[in-house]
Computed example of a mutant assay.
Amino acid sequence: MTQAKFIQRGASLIEILIGLAIGLIILVAIGTAYVNANNTIRQREDQAQLNDPARAVLTMLRQNLMQAGYVDAFDLDVAGQTRAASLFTQGDEDLANLFIRSPTRPISTPITLMFPGLTPIFGCDGTMNGTPNGIATAAPPAVQTCGALSATRHTLQIAYQGVPNNAGNATNSLAALNPNTGDGLDCLQQAPPAGQTIVINRFSLSPLPLAAGADSQLRCAGSGGAAGQDIAPGVEEFVLRYQMSAPGVTPGPLDQGVAAGGGQERYLTAAQVTASAQRWAGVTAVEVCMVSATPASRGPAAQGTIDLQPNRPTCTRDATGAFNPNVARAAGDARLWKRYTAVVSLRNAVFVTPL
Results as ranks from 00 to 15, higher is better:
Val71Met: 01
Thr109Met: 03
Ile111Val: 11
Ser86Trp: 01
Gly91Thr: 05
Leu118Asp: 01
Phe99Ile: 12
Leu61Asn: 11
Pro110Gly: 07
Leu76Cys: 04
Asp77Cys: 03
Ser108Phe: 02
Thr82Met: 05
Thr89His: 06
Gln81Glu: 14
Pro120Tyr: 01
Phe122Arg: 08
Gln90Glu: 13
Val71Arg: 04
Ile107Phe: 11
Arg83Ile: 09
Pro103Ala: 01
Gln81Gly: 10
Ile100Val: 13
Asn97Pro: 00
Leu61Val: 10
Thr82Asp: 00
Pro116Arg: 06
Thr82Asn: 02
Met66Cys: 06
Ala79Thr: 12
Leu98Asp: 07
Asp94Glu: 10
Asn97Leu: 00
Ile121Asn: 05
Asn64Pro: 00
Pro116Asp: 03
Phe122Ala: 10
Gly117Pro: 04
Leu76Phe: 01
Ser102Lys: 12
Phe99Pro: 05
Ser108Asp: 07
Glu93Trp: 14
Ser102Gln: 14
Thr89Gly: 01
Val71Thr: 09
Asp75Arg: 03
Leu87Gln: 01
Ala68Gly: 12
Tyr70Arg: 03
Ala96Lys: 14
Asp77Lys: 02
Arg83Tyr: 14
Gly91Ser: 09
Arg83Glu: 15
Ala85Leu: 05
Asp75Tyr: 09
Pro116His: 02
Asp75Ile: 07
Asp77Phe: 06
Gln81Arg: 14
Phe99Thr: 14
Tyr70Trp: 09
Pro120Ala: 02
Arg101Ser: 10
Gln81His: 15
Gly117His: 08
Ile121Ser: 02
Gly91Gln: 08
Asp75Asn: 10
Gly117Leu: 04
Leu98His: 00
Leu113Trp: 05
Ala73Ser: 15
Ile111Ala: 07
Ala96Gly: 10
Phe99Asp: 12
Gln63Asp: 14
Gln67Phe: 12
Leu61Ala: 10
Leu98Lys: 02
Ser102Cys: 12
Ala79Gln: 14
Phe115Thr: 13
Gly117Cys: 08
Ala79Pro: 00
Ala68Asp: 12
Thr89Tyr: 06
Pro106Gln: 03
Phe74Trp: 13
Phe115Lys: 11
Ile111Arg: 10
Leu113Val: 04
Arg105Glu: 06
Ala73Gln: 15
Ile100Glu: 06
Asp75Lys: 03
Phe88Cys: 02
Asp77Met: 00
Met66Leu: 12
Asp94Phe: 04
Arg83Met: 15
Ala85Glu: 11
Pro110Val: 03
Val71Gly: 01
Leu65Tyr: 04
Arg83Asn: 15
Thr104Ser: 13
Met114Gly: 04
Ser102Glu: 14
Ala73Cys: 10
Val78Lys: 13
Ala68Trp: 11
Val71Asn: 05
Pro106Arg: 02
